[in-house]
Amino acid sequence: MDSVAPNKFVVGLWDHEEVYLHAIEHLRHKGVKIYDSLTPFPVHGLDEALGMKETRLHTAGFFFGATGTTLALSFMTWVMTTNYPIDFGGKPNWPVPSFIPITFELTVLFAAWGMTLTYLVRNKLWPGRVPRIYDKRTTDDRFALVFDAESLTDAEINSIKDACKKEGAVDVKDKVFTEAEGL
């Protein structure tokens, strides 16, 4: 992983998404910097609560789709009219209606694959990646907030812990990653 990434964390765990959302809002209000937030399922309102920007994946998808459309149309046109024009069943060499299905399919194909690959790259997901698991139950039923504890003093850490507990966290713990740690 990134060598400059912090290795020392405080992890707060919640067990109900609504409490969790409130906690995030309150903590942020207090000025606590949240390093990451892990949930077992997409919690609605989480991105607003965390103040995240709207993802631009849709836009990327549109451009990938447009690339597909252009590529399909221009390639078919080039093949049928310039590179190797052939008479098929008396049809014209630029049979636009025949191009529609493939153009549509390639648009979808490019949009889907482009978006998914972008998604994987941006989310740092690839086969064999070893993720940092702050708590095993974050993929099960616990909603976690992760705070960067690398540069914090013990007092600051404790205040964060207290704040979490106050906000209904069922558990708060320290998590330190060492280089050798795997799954």
Partner: peptide
């Protein structure tokens, strides 16, 4: 001249 077979060959093996 308008051969139905030519239209449907996916690999352009038959043409006019």
């Amino acid at each position: 001249d308008n051969a139905p077979c030519e239209n449907v060959c996916p690999v352009a093996a038959t043409n006019h």
